[in-house]
């Protein structure tokens, strides 16, 4: 027993090293002076010159701004559609179209992205021929595509949260005469809010990061940040991309750190409230 525990613990540590070394190397080399990126120029490093270059790069800034706007709209749309689908799948029992909906929400998660991208573009082209909308491809078609593949993830997150949740509160509300809409907004929605929030974050990240599907449904003048990065790194390593990666890692780490501290704080407050309530009863 002990020896196997040791083996799996070693595997865990090595696995984590494997997951983090590449990220760490990007961070380190973003402060390197040399254009060769992976050869450390000890005489002139660390330097912030790639960050300065990044801040002056109009193309990257424009693409980042477009990506943020698309991700904001797409993740919000995906959360609305995904929550509806998740609630329907988890609470409506066997309704007509259940199997269809269940199938269509899990398939996009594993579907190879080139296929999704190609099929969406062909749809948009066929639609334009047929009804004259959308006029060409661009930010609108990218957003529609992102909503579609992101909502699958939101559905799974919301559905599994609801599946693990007791229905008795909702039933009690209904027994007391609350209408279904009221039950949803007063009981169900507050209870699944954490799942919706993490679904939104997940959708935002996926949309912000997507390259393959976006490439198919993007047009001239609608290059997102991953598209710009891909065209830069396709033919080798460029140091300003390291600087960009470092900034992203910093944002994510800060976000996770803040949310962890926030959750700890909430938990401690709850515990204190329980203690106070117990003391008041003495």
């Amino acid at each position: 027993m002990r020896s196997r525990g040791l083996f799996s613990r070693c595997a865990l540590v090595l696995g984590l090293v494997f997951l983090y070394v590449p990220i760490l190397s990007m961070v380190i080399f973003s402060f390197n002076n040399s254009r060769l990126v992976t050869v450390w120029d000890a005489a002139h490093s660390p330097t912030l010159k790639w960050y300065v270059a990044l801040a002056a790069n109009e193309q990257i800034l424009r693409a980042a701004w477009l990506s943020i706007r698309i991700a904001l709209v797409a993740s919000t749309g995906a959360v609305i559609l995904g929550t509806l689908a998740g609630v329907a799948l988890a609470r409506f029992g066997a309704f007509r179209g259940r199997l269809l909906l269940a199938g269509m929400t899990t398939a996009p998660i594993v579907m190879p992205e080139v296929i999704t991208g190609l099929s969406l573009l062909l749809l948009f082209v066929a639609m334009e021929q047929l009804i004259g909308w959308p006029k060409g491809v661009g930010a609108v078609t990218i957003t529609l595509a992102h909503i579609t593949f992101c909502m699958a993830y939101v559905t799974v997150v919301v559905q599994s949260r609801l599946a693990g949740m007791d229905e008795s509160l909702e039933e009690a509300a209904m027994d007391l005469g609350a209408r279904p809409g009221r039950v949803f907004f007063r009981i169900t929605l507050p209870l699944i809010l954490p799942a919706i929030a993490s679904g939104w974050l997940l959708a935002f990240t996926l949309s912000w990061d997507d390259l393959v599907i976006t490439q198919f449904v993007a047009g001239p003048g609608s290059s997102t940040l991953p598209m710009v990065i891909f065209s830069k790194v396709r033919f080798g390593v460029t140091p300003d991309v390291n600087a960009l990666a470092t900034i992203l890692v910093l944002i994510v780490a800060t976000g996770i750190g803040v949310s962890t501290v926030w959750m700890r704080y909430q938990q401690r407050r709850r515990e204190r409230d329980v203690l106070l309530a117990a003391a008041a009863n003495l």
């Binding site: 984590l16 997951l19 983090y20 070394v21 590449p22 990220i23 190397s25 990007m26 080399f29 060769l36 990126v37 992976t38 050869v39 990240t205 912000w208 990061d209 390259l211 991953p226 990065i229 891909f230 790194v233 080798g236 390593v237 991309v241 390291n242 960009l244 990666a245 992203l248 890692v249 994510v252 780490a253 976000g255 996770i256 962890t260």
Partner: peptide, 25 residues
Amino acid sequence: MLIVLPFWTSFLLRVYAWIGLLKNN
């Protein structure tokens, strides 16, 4: 959280990081 954390940073950039690790120099 440590397992999932890299997933929240860009997939494209994490693949790109391996170019810097694996290339000849």
